[in-house]
Computed example of a mutant assay.
Amino acid sequence: MATAAVVAAMLGAEAAHAEGSFNTTISRWLTGKESRHWTDKNLDSTATTVKFSGCSTSSTSFRSATLQLKRKRENLPDPVLDRHDNTCNTSNFGRQGSGSYYFNLSRINGSDSGLHLNVNSVTVTY
């Protein structure tokens, strides 16, 4: 009986997990740099989030990194779906439909050039 309860709890917990996620780091990114691409099959209701931890810049104190969520389109420009100023926390881009996505770095501390971004831990959930 206890085993059945544990299995049921595990199955319930599994259903609450996101469709996908990955962890990475950012080292000396300039503005314009893209993350790796991922495919969201829209199998759940999980929002797309990008979590930063341990942020720094090359020559000044870190204040924010402006991230743009983009959807990959073949033979067409990739549209910017949303833009967030990440202050070394979590950017929530909401639930996205089926497709291939990535984020790019458009500004560091409000500037579009001259700084490098470093982030010790990046978690993308979709």
Results as ranks from 00 to 15, higher is better:
H116C: 00
S91M: 04
R28L: 11
A8F: 07
R73M: 11
S27E: 14
A9N: 02
A13Q: 12
R107E: 15
S106W: 15
L67H: 07
F22T: 09
N89Q: 08
N109W: 15
P79H: 10
R28S: 09
I108L: 10
L30Q: 13
E34S: 03
F93V: 06
G114A: 08
A13P: 04
L117E: 05
L105S: 02
T48H: 08
T46A: 07
K41W: 06
R95H: 06
F62A: 05
T60H: 10
R107H: 04
H84N: 07
S111T: 14
K41R: 09
T60E: 15
Y101L: 03
G110K: 13
I108H: 05
M1P: 02
E19D: 06
K51D: 12
A9H: 01
N89T: 12
L43S: 03
A13Y: 10
T46N: 13
S111V: 11
R63F: 04
A16Q: 10
T125E: 13
E19L: 01
C88G: 01
T31Q: 10
T87Y: 09
S58R: 13
S106F: 13
W38T: 01
F62Q: 09
H84D: 14
L117P: 01
H116S: 01
T57D: 14
Y102V: 06
R95F: 00
V6I: 11
F22S: 02
A47W: 13
A8T: 11
N104L: 12
P77E: 14
M10L: 05
A4H: 05
S45F: 11
G20W: 07
R71K: 11
L76N: 05
D82I: 06
V50Q: 07
H116E: 15
E14H: 01
G110W: 14
L115T: 04
M1H: 02
N89I: 06
S121V: 12
L11Y: 05
T24Y: 05
R107S: 01
T66Q: 15
N120Y: 10
T66S: 09
T25V: 13
Q68D: 14
T125L: 08
D85W: 02
R83S: 06
R83M: 09
R107V: 04
T31F: 08
G32M: 14
G99R: 06
H84C: 03
D40Y: 04
F62H: 07
G12R: 11
A4M: 12
R95E: 11
H116Y: 13
N104H: 09
F62R: 07
Y101K: 03
T31S: 04
N92A: 01
G97K: 09
E14T: 05
G32K: 11
P77K: 10
F22Q: 04
K72G: 00
N118G: 00
L11I: 08
T31M: 08
H116P: 00
A47D: 15
H17I: 10
L117W: 07
F52I: 09
T87V: 15
T3D: 08
T49W: 06
G54P: 06
G99F: 04
L69E: 10
N104V: 08
S56D: 15
T123A: 02
W29T: 01
